[in-house]
């Protein structure tokens, strides 16, 4: 995020950094592979900004489309799609409920299919099209599933709701919404602790039976 990157490095914290890595960067022949003159790098190390340089090595480029917009990012390989959406792109509609793929709060669409974004590393998403809850409506015109969730009160606290709605849309697209029983089964990866399940089923049935494009 712009704010965070613009923030000056904390000097006190930089002083306690691992000296071995600093030395590595000073000596590394890898430096010749980057468009940096050794003199600049050594000066950088002396100025205690070597961690930032190291961070460049540790990051990988990621180009993905999110809600129709191309994002060119530089991410750590260990960063999940969920954390990239929430922390780097400020798309906080996608929620973290367990970080273990057990609750569904982080459900997004990748190339039209629902996935748990907490179980997906960002670097796996190169060239993919991501849709989050923020990208579901058509401008001010809510998606029929969003309308149905409001009408049937398919939530209380609202925290699992984005994941439920993304899952619900996929559930119909997959052809898994042909009966109340089937909807319940295919929506069971999305936990709602407030207990809105019957209302969620009603909302999905209304959209399905209404034959609206999802």
């Amino acid at each position: 995020m712009e704010n965070k990157e613009a923030y000056p490095a904390n000097d006190a914290a930089q002083d306690v950094k691992d000296s071995s890595r600093r030395n590595f960067i000073k000596q590394s022949t890898l430096l010749t592979a980057v468009a940096l003159t050794p003199g600049t790098a050594i000066k950088a190390a002396a100025d205690h900004i070597d961690e930032q340089i190291a961070a460049v090595f540790e990051k990988m480029p990621l180009k993905m489309q999110v809600n129709g917009k191309t994002q060119n990012l530089s991410v750590e390989p260990r960063a999940t799609l969920l954390d990239i959406l929430r922390e780097q792109l400020d798309l906080t509609g996608t929620k973290k409920g367990c970080d273990h793929g057990q609750c569904g709060a982080c459900t997004v669409h990748v190339d039209g299919h629902r996935i748990n974004s907490c179980l997906t590393l960002g670097v796996m998403m190169n060239g993919r099209k991501i849709t989050t809850i923020e990208g579901l409506a058509n401008g001010n015109q809510l998606h029929p599933m969003q309308e149905a969730f409001i009408k049937h009160d398919g939530f209380q606290c609202g925290y699992c709701t984005p994941g439920q709605i993304m899952s619900a849309v996929a559930c119909i697209r997959e052809g898994h919404a042909n009966s109340e029983h089937e909807i319940r089964e295919y929506m069971s990866g999305n936990i709602c602790r407030c207990g809105a399940y019957p209302n969620i089923v009603n909302a999905i049935q209304e959209v399905k039976d209404g034959g609206m494009a999802v």
């Binding site: 509609g93 989050t132 409001i150």
Partner: peptide
Amino acid sequence: GRLKVTGAAKY
């Protein structure tokens, strides 16, 4: 409701 179904509700 609208804030909650669009992801605009901030926790």
